[in-house]
């Protein structure tokens, strides 16, 4: 591809124990083009969430990103950023949506204050400016802006996740990392939210790193998919190819685990 937006090269992450280490991510390399949706699929413990955290440098000891690993966003190595540059980088270049939205929103702050928090620090906006931007973002995710003064617990799970997405997009990031954003939601809400993200992506041009274990959903939503097993990236291809012609045994095994709605038993 022409200049990728995100370039992960030889990423290796260990969890350092008292005697032994656990290799969570093993020499993983992949690129994400501007405006592309890249999916990372795998079961629990495969390392996909570890990669997501590493991109925003959210890890804490005993996690250790081994030397030789590089994460390049628009040419700059994220791993080399000093604390000030890192603060700028977060939210503006990369935004992250975590699995349980319930935990991402501060339960004692009103929604408009949560927007103000982010917009004040990163863009120096005043309250009035933040309110305007918040209204704009909430409308984009189909939440009535007049509910800005509500608290998180007054919204349903699906709506909270939408609010988190709105806050993520408030600073026009180039890359949005989503770690199992809809796993805890029911299937209709999941469809609505992802549909919307797809439309927003086309409008604003950001890339998405989408992490989940639901392969069928990935093929619907993503342009390219990487399959992870025990820290390694075992297969990487266009979504259609992953669906129609899976190469790796594990990919085939994953496909076999999803019963088809209309067929009988999948072989």
């Amino acid at each position: 591809m022409s200049e990728p937006l995100l370039s992960v090269r030889n990423l290796t992450i260990d969890y350092i124990g008292e005697e032994t280490d656990f290799r969570a991510v093993d020499d993983v390399s992949f690129d994400i083009a501007p405006g592309e949706v890249f999916g990372l699929a795998g079961e629990s413990g495969c390392g996909k969430s570890t990669i997501a955290f590493a991109i925003s440098r959210l890890h804490k000891p005993p996690a250790l990103i081994r030397k030789g690993s590089r994460i390049l966003l628009a040419g700059r190595d994220v791993l080399d950023l000093d604390p000030k540059a890192l603060a700028d980088f977060r939210w503006r270049e990369v935004a992250m949506v975590f699995q349980s939205a319930m935990n991402s929103l501060n339960p004692v702050l009103r929604i408009e204050d949560q927007f103000y928090d982010v917009l004040r620090i990163h863009k120096g906006m005043t309250r009035a400016q933040a309110r305007e931007r918040a209204a704009e973002m909430l409308r984009l995710v189909d939440i009535p802006p007049d509910r800005m003064r509500n608290y998180p617990h007054q919204f349903s799970g699906g709506m909270r996740q939408r609010i988190v997405i709105a806050i993520c997009m408030a600073l026009d990031p180039k890359l949005v990392v989503m770690d199992e954003p809809t796993t805890a939601l029911d299937v209709v809400v999941q469809r609505e939210i992802l549909q919307r993200i797809n439309e927003l992506r086309k409008e604003f041009g950001f890339s998405v790193l989408f992490i989940t274990h639901d392969l069928g959903l990935m093929v619907q939503f993503c342009d390219r998919i990487g399959i992870m097993l025990a820290g390694k990236l075992v297969e990487q291809n266009d979504a259609a190819a992953i669906y129609k012609t899976p190469q790796h045994d594990y990919t085939k095994k994953l496909w076999a685990s999803f019963p088809s709605l209309h067929g009988g038993l999948l072989s």
Binding site: V187, V188, Q190, R191, E192, L194, Q195, N198, D214, L215, G216, L217, V219, Q220, F221, Y243, L261
Partner: peptide, 18 residues
């Protein structure tokens, strides 16, 4: 049933938009 992920149907397909 329409919301169940179906790998044969891309999100971009306007016929299946919710």
């Amino acid at each position: 049933l329409s919301a169940v992920p179906d790998p044969d149907v891309r999100f971009d397909d306007p016929r299946t938009r919710l």
